[in-house]
Design a binder for these strands. Structure first.
Length: 821
RNA sequence: GCCGGGGUGGCGGAACUGCAAGACGCAAUGGACUCAAAAUCCAUCGAGCGCAAGCUCAUGAGGGUUGGACUCCCUCCCCCGGCACCA
């Protein structure tokens, strides 16, 4: 028997698979399909990360199983290659991003192939390929034409070190996500996408898809829908009104002042006496960095607009108006009505500045004694007033009091009655904002718009797409923070497509997300020059049946790409009869930590290189260990020693498999255990419990080892088949060596024989008073009577029952019998 | 602060809708094979008591429900992830 030589075997089979193209998905539009998707990687200079491997190997296991189950499987891969690291590298070294990308993708491709991943390489895509980004630009133009892309001057996050505008999600605790520098605010014209228009659908349609509850909650929280009312407060002696959004209109009678955000536009229109004080405050607020604002959460500051009085539309009373930076300009109307008795923040603020605290709601939930809910009793009302002033606000609804004709009404009802009474209207507000879609950078898709003095923004004609990214030498953004493209005069200056006059191209490029918004559609038809993909093929392959990726992408990427899909669906670019969700099922893998239990990073030097693992052990060992190390969804530290177990198992299978070709026996016992394993492995893969699937395979091999010659050829075949998704090379070699025909990975997935499994004898646990005292081997399906008779005869049982009276016998068929005395 | 998810041997982790806690793997210890080592194979491997059969305790802490709880309920502690002045 030749030694197990993974290096030779693995290369041999990878070459064979590739040569015969057996993993290519065919557009056989009648056959049952299955679309397995993994997040395509950003091809960094560091090469493939074990985190990528975890996801790719897991979905490869699934894809291989699905093929064996007879599905036409699409399992594609590509490169999300636009992005900052490559551009920063270019600034540092002068190497063109396109060249660096080429080098990096070559490396990633080589690594992926070496892992035996069954990707369809014929459909490989690259977001930086003009034939690809032509369609990214095309999608942008459709958004523009539908009024969903617009330009707006915005205070944006500015990283003084990277010289780039950052999206909110790129700012972590007030610092730049990439370089760690403190982020400041500047005003800049930006392209935005009106994703908020889709807020309700993005939230509601989550009911239609199979995502883990956790991911749905994250998305919903991100969208942050809340129901409330918009109410206007007139200003005394002025035509102006202050609009506020509130989720608690039931507390309107308790609104004792208003607060405007420092950026509120009304401030400049009102006349007040302390102009200088206000100016200083606003200036200071603007320069406050995110970090400080968060740190100052507990210590709120503000200034009163002296001389300005608003009218509470419910009480008709005059109330003061303040400016404070705890009110956010971008949420609701940028102004609030303050009800200190029923809001934590308002309470803090009112206490600090000595503002009036007026109680208007008595809580009526459980835990509050009945006499304390009786709003008619003077003492009760007094009790709540005092209590709130001393101990803080009551935040929950209940019964409204001190509120004119609404007194005595439950909060939920009073909300809408009071809103109606003051002429307010119901409103839904969202926490998330429109999506900033421009970057003042080089290495991204140029935004295909042209600015003409006469015609304003004009889309590039479709026939002129793609707008190619010009080759340049100097990749630095300008000092003003413009894209380096602004320096390429002969690219910027063009004729207006509409009036043929002098015009200029937009020099901003799109953010990273642009290319990944729709990539899964391109895989259906990656070479199409006339459409982003043939609708017939989209109709066949979509929705993606199973999409796996990192937890870090479940809010942004997932939300953005769902939005773009819905948009494309709305404009008919996607067949209507498809449904408006792109991903049927989404799962997420956990992070792999370094051996020291800390996140892998270059600076810590704890990065595991998959190439080394493959060289030192084997691809199959790498695959097996990656799947075996722990629960797929959880964070797990990488353990080099754990790999040894995987390698030993493979060696054992190699030895046993080689012996099995001269098998003489045909053990029924082995067959039964094998069929149990078939059942378990089949089920476990479906719920991503790879670790227990593999332990089942190991258990089988441990039993097999005791009588290596007792496994029949047919059973050997089945064993190799269920092992093959995990260790495809080894199983292929053993398949061939055993004289079986065809490829192991193209066999039919075996079915567990349930009858065989049921025939196994079962241990019946014998308990006395709930404690295990004995066990007995029984046939399945035995009745309680039979069990009792058998059990009561046993010596050990008699000993425990001696001198005691049996009260009750509990029988759980095929599991246990419990005698209570 | 709010929303999720967790705390099980020396370690990674098993345990179905409550029914033998610790599968599988790693490490460790003893043994076989060997001149020797590696590899492999066999055995032991939560704690305590016992010569043994066996008994008792044990799934973050405390309480509860149940014939029976890692699993369900209540209170508390700790860890991880997300959001964070969203009115």
């Amino acid at each position: 028997m030749a030694n197990y030589n993974p290096q030779r075997i693995e290369k041999k089979w990878q070459d064979k698979w590739e040569k015969l193209g057996i993993f290519q998905a065919r557009d056989k539009l009648k056959k049952a399909k299955f679309y397995v998707l993994v997040e395509f990687p950003y091809p960094s200079g560091e090469g493939l990360h074990v985190g990528h491997c975890r996801s790719y190997i897991a979905m490869d296991v699934l894809a291989r199983k699905r093929r064996m189950e007879g599905f036409n499987v699409l399992f594609p891969i590509g490169w999300d290659a636009f992005g900052l690291p490559t551009e920063n590298y270019a600034i540092k070294t002068g190497v063109a991003p396109s060249l660096a990308t080429q080098k990096n993708t070559d490396n990633f491709r080589r690594q992926a192939k070496r892992l035996g991943l069954s990707f369809d390489w014929k459909r490989e895509i690259n977001t930086t390929d003009p034939n690809y980004y032509k369609w990214t630009q095309w999608i942008f133009l459709q958004l523009f034409k539908e009024g969903l892309a617009y330009k707006k001057k915005l205070p944006v996050n500015w990283c003084p070190s990277c010289k780039i505008v950052l999206a909110n999600e790129e700012v972590i605790n007030g610092a730049c996500e990439r370089c760690g520098a403190k982020v400041t605010k500047i005003e800049k014209e930006q392209w935005l996408l009106r994703i908020t228009k889709y807020a309700d659908r993005l939230s509601d349609d989550l009911a239609k898809v199979d995502y883990p509850g956790k991911i749905k909650i994250l998305q919903k929280d991100w969208i942050g829908r809340s129901e409330g009312a918009e109410i206007e407060f007139p200003i005394k002696g002025s035509q102006e009104k202050i609009k506020v959004f509130t989720t608690r209109p039931d507390t309107l009678f308790g609104a004792t002042y208003l607060v405007l955000a420092p950026e509120h536009e009304l401030i400049s229109k009102l006349s007040f006496t302390n102009i200088n004080e206000i100016k200083t405050y606003i200036e200071k607020a603007k320069n406050k960095k995110e970090i400080e604002r968060i740190a100052l959460k507990k210590d709120k500051t503000g200034v009163e607009l002296k001389g300005v009085k608003a009218i509470n539309p419910a009480t008709k009373g005059e109330i003061p108006v303040w400016v404070a930076d705890y009110v956010l300009s971008h949420y609701g109307e940028g102004s609030i009505m303050s009800v200190p008795a029923h809001d934590e923040r308002d309470f803090q603020f009112a206490k600090k500045y000595g503002l009036i605290i007026e109680s208007v709601v008595i809580p009526s939930h459980k835990g509050v004694p009945r006499e304390f809910i009786d709003y008619k009793k003077k003492e009760t009302v007094e009790y709540w007033r005092n209590r709130i002033k001393l101990n803080g606000p009551v935040l929950i609804g209940g019964i409204v009091f001190n509120s004119g004709k609404f007194t005595g009404m439950p909060s939920e009802k009073a909300k809408w009655e009071i809103t109606k009474f003051v002429g307010g209207k119901r409103k839904t507000q969202y926490r998330f904002r429109d999506w900033i879609f421009s970057r003042q950078r080089y290495w991204g898709e140029p935004i295909p718009l042209i600015f003409c003095e006469k015609c304003s923004w004009v889309p590039v004609l479709e026939k002129d797409l793609p707008v190619r990214l010009p080759e340049i030498k100097d990749y630095k953004p300008t000092e003003k923070g413009e894209s380096p493209l602004a320096k390429v005069k002969n690219w910027v200056n063009v004729k207006c497509p509409s009036c043929r006059g002098q015009a200029k191209r937009e020099t901003d490029v799109m953010p990273n997300w642009a290319g990944s918004n729709w990539y899964y559609l391109r895989y259906c038809d990656p070479k199409n020059n006339r459409k982003l993909a043939d609708p017939k093929k989209i109709k066949y392959w979509l929705p993606v049946d199973w999409y796996n990726g990192g937890m870090e992408h479940v809010t942004l990427h997932l939300l953005y790409s769902r939005f773009i899909f819905k948009f494309l669906w709305d404009i008919g670019a996607i067949p209507k009869n498809l449904g408006s969700e792109p991903y049927k099922k989404r799962t997420a893998h956990g992070v792999i930590l370094g051996g020291d239990g800390v996140k892998m990073s270059k600076s810590r030097g704890n990065i595991i290189n998959p190439d080394k693992i493959v060289e030192q052990h084997s691809t199959d060992a790498m695959r097996l260990y990656t799947m075996f190390m722990g629960p797929f969804g959880e964070m797990i530290p990488w353990d080099m020693k754990g790999l040894i177990g995987a390698r030993r198992f493979l060696e054992k299978v190699w030895r046993l498999g080689n012996q099995a070709s001269n098998a003489k026996g045909n053990s029924l016992r082995l067959k039964k255990i094998l069929h149990k394993a078939i059942k378990k492995v089949s089920e476990d893969i479906e719920v991503l419990k790879f670790n227990t699937a593999i332990s089942t395979l190991m258990e089988f091999s441990n039993t097999w080892q005791q009588t290596p010659l007792d496994l029949s050829k047919e059973d050997l075949k089945d064993f190799l088949k269920i092992l093959s998704p995990f260790a495809p090379h080894l199983t292929e070699e053993l398949w061939e060596k055993s004289g079986f025909t065809g490829f192991c990975c193209q066999q039919k997935w075996p079915k567990a024989d349930l009858k065989l499994i049921r025939e196994e004898k079962i241990n019946l646990i014998i308990q006395i008073n709930g404690k295990v005292r004995d066990k007995i081997e029984i046939n399945p399906g035995i009745s309680q009577k039979e069990a009792e008779n058998a059990v009561l005869k046993r010596e050990r049982v008699k000993k425990w029952l001696a001198g005691k009276k049996i009260k009750k016998i509990i029988f759980v068929p095929e599991k246990l019998i419990n005698i209570v005395v």
